[in-house]
Simulated assay, not measured.
Amino acid sequence: MWKGSISFGLVNIPIKMYAATEEKNIRFRYLHEKCQTPIQTVRTCPHCQVEVPWNEVVKGYEYADGRFVLMEKEELEKLLPDENKAIEILDFVDLSEIDPIYFQKTYYLGGQDQNSKAYALLREALRKTGKIGVAQITIRSKQTLGVLRVLEDCLILETIFYPDEIRATDQVPYVPAGQDLPAKELEMAEKLIENLTTPFDATKYKDEYRERVQEAVEQKIHGQQIVESPSPKPEKVVDLMEALKASLEATKPKKKTTRRKKATS
Rank of each mutant, 00 (worst) to 15 (best):
E62I: 00
L181E: 06
I15M: 05
K252N: 02
R27L: 12
V58C: 10
F28M: 14
M71A: 15
K117V: 15
I226G: 05
P163R: 14
T41P: 02
E72Q: 14
D153T: 13
G223R: 01
C45Y: 08
K255A: 12
E208R: 13
V42N: 06
Y18R: 08
L145Y: 11
S247T: 06
K233E: 13
H222N: 14
Q143S: 15
V50A: 13
E83K: 13
I226P: 05
E97S: 15
E194S: 09
R210T: 08
E74P: 00
A177R: 11
L186C: 08
A118N: 05
D201W: 00
N195H: 15
I166G: 11
M188W: 03
G130N: 06
Y205R: 06
G133R: 11
S229L: 07
E211L: 11
S141R: 14
D99P: 02
T144N: 12
G178Q: 01
K255I: 04
V52K: 07
F92H: 11
I101D: 06
T138F: 08
I132V: 13
Q136I: 12
V69L: 14
E208Q: 09
M188G: 04
K261W: 03
V147A: 03
A135V: 13
L126H: 07
E77A: 11
L145Q: 13
K131C: 09
M17L: 13
E235L: 14
V213R: 03
E158W: 12
G4V: 06
P81G: 13
L70H: 10
G110N: 01
Y107R: 02
K85N: 15
A86K: 12
R149W: 10
D207F: 02
E228S: 11
E249K: 14
L240A: 08
A64T: 06
I156E: 00
K142E: 08
P38R: 08
A135Y: 07
Q179N: 03
I89S: 05
A86C: 07
N55M: 09
K252I: 00
R149E: 12
V213G: 02
T198V: 11
T257D: 04
V213M: 09
E23M: 10
E124S: 08
Y63V: 08
K255M: 07
A189H: 00
D201Y: 00
K73M: 03
P232F: 10
D180I: 10
E22W: 00
G133W: 09
M17F: 03
I26D: 05
I221R: 04
T251C: 05
T138C: 13
T144W: 06
L80C: 07
K142G: 03
L95T: 00
K128M: 15
E62T: 02
W2R: 07
L79R: 02
S5A: 15
T169P: 04
A118T: 09
K128E: 15
L109R: 09
V147E: 02
Y108W: 12
V172Y: 06
N115Y: 05
E75F: 02
P199V: 08
V237M: 05
P81D: 14
P176V: 10
V57R: 11
V150Q: 02
A118K: 07
L121F: 01
I137E: 01
Q114A: 12
L126F: 10
V238Q: 06
F200P: 00
A246T: 04
I193H: 01
S231M: 08
L148G: 07
A243N: 00
